[in-house]
Design a protein around this nucleic acid. Structure first.
Lengths: 345, 345
DNA sequence: TCAAGATGATAATACGAATTATCATCTTGA
DNA sequence: TCAAGATGATAATTCGTATTATCATCTTGA
C-alpha cells in the first residue's frame, strides 16, 4: 500500500526547476511587482514543474505565514444535518455553499467541537475554530459568552440571524422581523380586526423579541388593541377569544396545527371566525393542510450575504456588516376580514 | 476599537512563567515520559499562566508540526445542499457528521472547486483538495480519471458507493445491491412469479450494474424467466406484460409514479395484476401514495463507516477497506402473489 | 574604464508549536 | 576528591510558505 504520503512542497518544485524556494513562492503568488523580478523563462520553468507535479500550496503552512486560507468555519450549536425533512439549516447552507463556490472558498463544518450538555462548545480545549479564517454562526440561539470571546479575540465572524451586541458590534445578516410582522398587523387592521393577540413568549432568541417588538409597534400605530398569550394552551386561548380577539399571531409557526385543533374543538372556523397568522416558516417539520398566512424568511439569501459580509470584514471593505433582509409576505388562506360583531360578546 | 489583538502564544506563556517555549510545549503535552523531566513547581507555574491567559494552541501551527489536520474533505460533483427536500446526500452527510464528531475531526466541504458544465472539477487549477488529510467522495457517478489521479497521487480517499478499481483498489463503503435485489427476486419467485423484468439500463454507475447483476443471477438461480426493459416507455412495458411478465423491478425507484400511471391507463391493478418492486429509495423527490416494495439503502451507516475506513487508511490499520453493507428489505404493498393464469395469454 | 543603475535571484527570517539533542548543575558512591 | 549518574531545563531544528533584505552580475553612459 501507499506509505505515509509526502506532500509535494515548494522545495521540490525548486529542486526540479533549479531555483530557490523563495523564487517558487514568488512566481506562485505573482509577486512580481515592487522590487522583485523573475525572468519569464524562469517563471515558465517553475510553472511547468508546478503543473507536472500538481503541486498545491499547503493551506496550513500558508495560513501560518500569511493571514488567510479561504476556509470559512461553519459553527452550529446543533447538528448541522438533523433528520427532519424540513430542515431549518438547509436553506442557509444552500446559500452559503452557493456563495462559497462563487468566492472560491471552502466551508469547514466545525463538527469536532465537543457537545456538552446538549450544546456544542465553541472554545473547548483544542478548539479548531482558529483553523479557519473565521466563521459563520448558524442557529437560533448563540451563547453570549462565545460571542464576546469571538469579538474579544478578534476572530472574524458573521451571525446568520440578528444578535445583540456583545462587547462590540456583532456582524450579522438577519431577517427583518419587525417589518414583516408589522406588515401582517397592518393587513389585519385593514381587514377590520380590532383586537389581536401575539401567541408566544416574545423573548429568548433575538428573533422572537424582534417579532414581538414589531407586533406591538405596528398594533399601537394602527390603533389596534393587542395582547400576548404566553403559552399555547386552551385556557389562555379561550380567554383571548372571549375577550374579543379575532386574530392570532403565532410566534412559532409550528404551533399552527395545535391552535387549529383547539379552534376546531371550540367550533371556531378559520378564518371565518378567527384569523391565523404565522410569523415565519415552520422551523420543525409540520403537517398542515392549512395554508397559513405569514411571511417567508429569506434563508438562502441570508446564507449568501453572510459570506459577503464575512469577506467584507476580513478585507476591511466598507460595507454594512449588520444587514436585515426583507421577508416575503405570504397571503395564505387564514387571514380574512374580521367577523362582524354578531357572534361576539 | 480593539485592533487585531495578537493571539496568546506559547512564547507569552513562557515569558510570564519564566521558562522557555519548549518547556511550555512539554508541559502542555504532558511529554514527561522518556528523557524529559520538568519539576512539579515549574509545571504548576506554566499551567497557572495558561489558565490565566486562556491560552489555546493554534491548531494551524500544530498541524504544521505534526502531519495531519484531522480535516476530511467532502467532495461531490453536484451541490451538497440541493433544494429538494428529500435530499439524496442528506443521510450520507448525517452519518459523516455523526462519525466526524465522534472521531474529533472536521469536515471540509470542497466548495471552492469550480463548477463547469454542471459538474465540479476535482483537479481544477489551484485545486484545494489537499487542504485536507484526504477526502470522501459522494455521488452516484465519479469521474474515472479523477479516481485514478487520487490513487496515483496517493491521496487517501474513500468513496461512498462501490467503485470499480482505478489504477489500484478503490476504498469504498457501498450498499450490497446484488444481495438486496436477489432477495427481492427470491420473494417474487416464492410468490409464484414466473416471468419478471428489470426496468432500467443496468449500466453507467456501478450501482446500476450491481442491481442488474444481482437480478440476473438470482432470477437464473430461482428458475425464473427474466428480461430487461431499457426505457420507461409504454411500448416496451406493454410488450413485457403481453409476454407474460407479472413483476417489474425498477432500477430507479423514482420511476414508480410513471409506471403506476402507465399501469392505471392499461387497467392493470397493482399489485393484483402486476407486482412492482423498487430497487432502492427514491433519489429524487417523488410523491407516491403507493407504498412500493423494495429495500432501503443504509445511507447514514454508509456515511459513518466511510470515516472509519478513512481513518483505517491513513493510520494503516488492518481493516477491510472495501465494504458492502446490507440493505434493509421493505415489504411494501406492491409485491403480491402472481396472478393466476386466467387473465394471461 | 568605472560608477550608477538595471536585472535576476537568493539567503535569511517569521509564523507557532513539537521534538531532539545538548547542556549545566547537583548528587552520589568509592 | 572526582567521575558517573541523576535532575531540570533549554537551544536548536522541523514543518511549508511568504516576504524582505541582500547580493551578484550585467548594461549603460560619460
Amino acid at each position: 500500500m501507499t506509505g505515509p504520503r509526502r506532500r509535494v512542497t515548494q522545495r521540490d518544485i525548486a529542486r526540479i526547476s533549479g531555483v530557490s524556494q523563495a523564487t517558487v513562492s514568488l512566481v506562485l503568488n505573482n509577486r512580481l511587482d515592487g522590487g522583485v523580478r523573475i525572468a519569464p523563462e524562469t517563471q515558465q520553468r517553475v510553472l511547468d514543474a508546478i503543473r507536472e507535479t500538481g503541486y498545491v500550496a499547503d493551506p496550513v503552512a500558508r495560513r501560518l505565514a500569511d493571514q488567510y486560507n479561504r476556509i470559512i468555519g461553519v459553527f452550529t450549536y446543533e447538528p448541522v444535518f438533523p433528520s427532519g425533512a424540513r430542515d431549518f439549516f438547509h436553506p442557509f447552507l444552500l446559500g452559503l455553499e452557493e456563495q462559497a463556490e462563487r468566492l472560491g472558498c471552502d466551508l469547514l463544518l466545525l463538527t469536532s467541537a465537543p457537545v456538552e450538555g446538549g450544546r456544542r462548545r465553541m472554545f473547548a480545549d483544542g478548539s479548531r475554530i482558529r483553523l479557519a479564517d473565521g466563521c459563520v454562526l448558524l442557529g437560533r440561539e448563540v451563547d453570549r459568552g462565545d460571542l464576546e470571546r469571538l469579538v474579544g479575540e478578534g476572530i472574524p465572524f458573521v451571525s446568520v440571524g440578528r444578535r445583540d451586541d456583545a462587547g462590540g458590534p456583532v456582524p450579522y445578516v438577519g431577517a427583518d422581523y419587525p417589518a414583516a410582522v408589522a406588515a401582517l398587523v397592518e393587513r389585519a387592521a385593514a381587514l377590520g380586526h380590532k383586537r389581536i393577540a401575539y401567541v408566544g413568549r416574545g423573548e429568548g432568541p433575538e428573533s422572537y423579541a424582534d417579532r414581538l417588538r414589531g407586533f406591538r409597534a405596528a398594533a399601537a400605530k394602527a390603533g389596534v388593541e393587542y395582547g400576548r398569550i404566553a403559552a399555547v394552551a386552551p385556557e389562555p386561548l379561550d380567554a383571548a377569544v372571549a375577550g374579543g380577539v379575532t386574530a392570532l399571531f403565532l410566534e412559532e409557526p409550528a404551533d399552527a396545527p395545535a391552535v387549529t385543533a383547539w379552534a376546531g374543538a371550540r367550533g371556531l372556523r378559520v378564518p371565518d371566525d378567527l384569523s391565523l397568522v404565522a410569523l415565519g416558516d415552520p422551523t420543525r417539520p409540520v403537517s398542515i393542510d392549512l395554508d397559513v398566512a405569514g411571511f417567508t424568511i429569506p434563508r438562502r439569501e441570508m446564507g449568501r450575504q453572510a459570506l459577503d459580509v464575512f469577506f467584507a470584514l476580513i478585507e476591511g471593505a466598507e460595507t454594512d456588516v449588520q444587514r436585515l433582509l426583507p421577508c416575503e409576505q405570504h397571503d395564505g388562506a387564514t387571514l380574512a376580514p374580521a367577523p362582524t360583531g354578531r357572534n361576539r360578546s
